[in-house]
């Protein structure tokens, strides 16, 4: 039993990743938009779990706050505003969807064919796992948030400020686009 729990703990990333894939597949396959949003929420929560298992604790929590707390609620509101259409949805999928799926699968197969040897073969350069002495950089005194903020405010201050301007522009743009036309 203990061995089983330890195995689960070691493979936490794979479990969350596969669950995220399932949520994403449910999202694009379901007919109703509300079900799509729920699949999206599930996928985002599982990706947050992936972040946590990759020692990005701050980002995992930020993912839950931003996506599950903000974006999914926004999507649900818009679905409620928009989906009460008189016309029923004629078709869920595009006419060209067969070609699209075939093209993407072909691209995936090509990618795997080219990179299979590099990523998984015997010729892969080294065992691609984290060396423990490098992990120190991600933790300043055991605090991931401190390390992230040091990166954000010391090394990448200019992109951060540009992002804040982008957010302001997006806010104003969203208000202008969504307001009712009153002359």
């Amino acid at each position: 039993m203990e061995h089983f729990i330890q195995t689960i703990g070691r493979n936490m990333f794979a479990i969350f990743g596969v669950m995220a894939l399932g949520g994403a597949a449910f999202m694009i396959a379901s007919r109703s938009a509300v079900h799509s949003v729920l699949g999206f929420l599930f996928a985002m929560l599982c990706i947050a779990g992936c972040f946590l298992s990759l020692e990005a604790e701050f980002l995992g929590m930020a993912q839950i706050l931003v996506y599950a707390g903000g974006i999914v609620v926004l999507f649900l509101f818009v679905v409620m505003l928009v989906e009460m259409s008189k016309k029923k949805e004629k078709e869920v999928f595009q006419l060209q969807s067969r070609y699209a799926v075939v093209a993407v699968l072909l691209g995936a197969a090509l990618f795997l064919g080219v990179f299979r040897k590099v990523l998984f073969g015997a010729a892969s350069p080294e065992a691609l796992v984290l060396r423990p002495e490098l992990a120190q950089g991600l933790n300043v005194a055991g605090q991931n948030a401190q390390a992230v903020s040091r990166g954000l405010f010391a090394d990448y201050l200019l992109p951060f400020e540009i992002l804040s301007v982008i957010l302001l522009v997006a806010l104003v743009g969203a208000v202008v686009l969504a307001k009712t036309e009153r002359v």
């Binding site: 980002l59 931003v66 060396r131 490098l134 992230v148 990448y156 806010l171």
Partner: peptide, 21 residues
């Protein structure tokens, strides 16, 4: 995580804000 540098996490945070916008 692989390289032990925090730059990737900082940029992931920036991408998250961009996605919200």
């Amino acid at each position: 995580r692989h390289s032990g540098s925090v730059s990737g996490q900082a940029f992931a945070l920036l991408v998250m804000g961009f996605a919200a916008a």
